[in-house]
Design a protein around this nucleic acid. Structure first.
Lengths: 163, 163
DNA sequence: GCTCAGCGTTTGCAATTGCAAGCACTTTGG
DNA sequence: CCAAAGTGCTTGCAATTGCAAACGCTGAGC
């Protein structure tokens, strides 16, 4: 049992980290682990403990459960909580807000799919960190224009109060 | 960190085992770990890895998630909302995208609450689709600025097709 | 050219996990 | 009485985790 399916979780962590556009060292610092250890984890050379796994999840701002599932530590659990369904079912927002949220979400999904196919074989990570950040369709952005208000409230690209 | 909160999970395992009326050795065999090691885990002398934890959960026929919660690896916090939980659990989007979505959603919620308080207690989330003056925090809008791209893609048309 | 800073990786090494073997105790029973 | 079989616990010891200190590489700036 020297090589279980640890590889998958390492790859998953690396994917998430690269998608978040942060360096290995940055994530290591955010997660409170050493850089070399994180490197080995990502390459499947080490099997991180549950504690480390949780810290990495926090550093990546993703659900620890998602990591555990990837690691095969939690079995399939419940239906993969469809974001779209949840948004549609939410009664606390207006129809227009709902539509905007769903559009943004779908836009993200679409963009990620495109990037995945692009970068899968791309050995040259020479890309504008600004340009390919996240992209939204033009008319969607236009729909967001009138939203400006309530300054000084959100912490969008920074850490949230995510405990 | 000689004595973390491992004690709680050990006690929890022991409680569950005794409730199931099985001996330490039986559970150890069912979980695929050695008896002495399980003994030490139950007394909080060892901090089991995620893999071991999962095997013990299986041996106990309980949810691995319950064990992780007890171990403090997954915070028991109930999902703030289905939408937020779904967004956080989604593995198809990046951390930053997640952040943006959640921030937008929370912004919507906050705005709606504010308006609710302003007007009378309007229990109907469906307000005028026309006068839908949604507002977003300033920095949140700023975070959305670099998104413009891929024109002609979205369906965020002005006509809210109000489900 | 050279230096400084950043990236991911490799290399020993202390600390810890996890186990095989054995310990002390209790109950059953020939 | 004493072997046999059950309980949980203690003891070394191999294997692994996790880290500090390096390494080689690339790009920015002097």
């Amino acid at each position: 049992m020297a090589l279980p399916k640890v590889g998958s979780i390492g790859e998953y962590i690396r994917e998430q980290r690269q998608q978040a556009k942060i360096s290995l060292r940055q994530l290591a610092a955010a997660a409170g682990v050493s850089n070399p250890y994180l490197s080995q984890i990502e390459r499947g050379l080490r099997k991180p403990s549950a504690e480390i796994l949780n810290q990495i999840a926090k550093g990546l701002h993703i659900s620890a459960q998602a990591l555990y599932v990837q690691a095969g530590l939690i079995e399939d659990k419940e239906p993969p909580s469809d974001v779209e369904a949840a948004i549609r079912a939410d009664t606390h927002i207006t129809g227009r807000q709902r539509q905007v949220l769903i559009d943004i979400y779908e836009s993200f999904r679409k963009e990620n799919r495109a990037e995945e196919g692009q970068t899968s074989q791309n050995a040259h990570p020479q890309r504008d960190p600004e340009s390919d950040d996240v992209t939204l369709p033009e008319d969607l952005l236009a729909a967001l224009e009138p939203f400006a208000a309530n300054p000084g409230n959100s912490t969008v690209t920074q850490e949230t109060k995510e405990g």
